[in-house]
Design a protein around this nucleic acid. Structure first.
Lengths: 110, 110
DNA sequence: CTATTGCGCAACCAAATAGTTGCATATATA
DNA sequence: TATATATGCAACTATTTGGTTGCGCAATAG
């Protein structure tokens, strides 16, 4: 079974759950109430999220609170970094290009 | 058929393709040579990437070059932003906490 | 102690997905 | 013009996935 963070955030319901519990830990029932899915469906999503360590549980009596392991989200950020370099470069090139045009215009080359 | 950028980057082969063509546009055959999959499999991945506008094609004779639409990657970055706020806050709280301990130590409360 | 509640888990099912095979089409080459 | 090459596309298959149903277990309430 493939189980990584990218596969975890592929599902829109799972992204919604992540956004929801980012603010505060919640029980499966409480989470399920925010969507039109069953508690079991949410439970399965939570299992996926737990398996890739995006979420951690805290038992409190018979309730289980699920909390976002927010530092894990940085892995996505880390992966994005390689592209961030490239898109910043593009902006630099655009800047240089604009500067060049500007310069040429000043010299009456337009 | 669900087709968004999060689903597109869920597949590891697709992520590898993205990283590969981020540097320079490539043809399906050239891409396939970098992996141990068939050209057709790569072609299907490219279709998925094209459908969610992560990739654009340029025909050149009988070759088709696939190029990463890098600005599209910012959508992931944008989604991450909501969590970035939270994790920065956590760091702030940690800083405050450390400052507090430091202060207490100065006052001989340790 | 019994009933209820919150939950996980396994079995099952329909839909989606990644990959393969076998074409068709367009461009290039001999 | 005949052949080779680069590619897309449709059909088929095995696997995965998201969801449902039903069960069992532990904690709480009556």
């Amino acid at each position: 079974m493939r189980r990584d963070i990218f596969q975890a955030i592929a599902d829109p319901t799972r992204r919604a759950i992540i956004a929801l519990i980012a603010l505060q830990a919640m029980t499966p029932n409480a989470i399920a109430e925010h969507f039109d899915t069953s508690r079991q469906a949410v439970s399965k999503h939570l299992r996926v999220l737990t398996e890739c360590e995006l979420v951690k549980q805290t038992q409190q009596g018979r309730e289980i609170y699920y909390e976002l392991e927010i530092s894990k989200m940085k892995e996505i950020d880390k992966w994005l970094n390689q592209f961030r370099k490239i898109w910043e470069e593009r902006f630099d090139n655009l800047d240089k290009y604009l500067a060049k045009i500007q310069k040429e215009r000043k010299h009456g080359k337009s």
